[in-house]
Amino acid sequence: MTKVSVTRLNLHYEEFHALKDVSLDIKDKEVTALIGPSGCGKSTFLRTINRMNDLIDNVKIEGEIKLEDQDIYKKEVDVAQLRRRVGMVFQKPNPFPKSIYENVAYGPRRYGIKAKTHLNEIVERSLKKAAIWDEVKDRLHKPALSLSGGQQQRLCIARALAMEPEVLLMDEPTASLDPIATARIEELINELKKEYAIIIVTHSMQQAARISDKTAFFLMGEIVEKGKTKEIFTVPKDKRTEGYITGRFG
């Protein structure tokens, strides 16, 4: 089932044409990896799906992005609610300078969930889903910034899961982590795709190959090639994809 459907998306930042005629369908319960060199537009593309680009002045967006059957750039769309349905995990772990518990409860609280029992359940369930519950259950009220980088990132994932999103955007979530922490996050992504549509931007070819079902290769704001990960990595159709992949492997 198609969860997010992007059709002929163009994004201009002032004079710069950052995304050119991008079309991509993202299926539910799959991991879609976006790869490509720095500045190719993959992160910009990711941020169009929860409209985080709205925060930047002078950005112009044309084309259509549908979440299920709703066009998310329609005027009547409440951006905050869209972002609740489309969760995001950032490149650098960014827990709030609050306790572990408060970090996870932050989102639900903003939606008026006040009952302590509900919040406790949400926090526990989210932390369990993010595979960090056992490590933090005894110190839920300690500052989140006292956790290690890998734990902070899993906490950020738990924080996003607390909102019961339908899509999870991940912007190079392991870029600042060591290999062991990276492996744990990758394991977690594998677990999470049973429930969510996951879109991940990554610099690491190996990571894309390991965890994704579909891959889209971005170059200079265009999608050069997209399809099943296995096929792209074994028999790329486009010369440029081949060059990029082999260059990185070799």
Binding site: N50, R83, R84, M88, F90, N94, P95, Y106, R110, Y111
Partner: peptide, 27 residues
């Protein structure tokens, strides 16, 4: 206050004022 905090809050579906009041000002 790092923009990371603002982004994190907005990405969770908080409104702009909620983000200012609950994250930016306390920090």
């Amino acid at each position: 206050v790092p923009d990371l905090y603002r982004e994190a809050s907005l990405a969770l579906g908080a409104t702009k004022w909620q983000t200012i009041y609950k994250v930016v000002l306390p920090t």
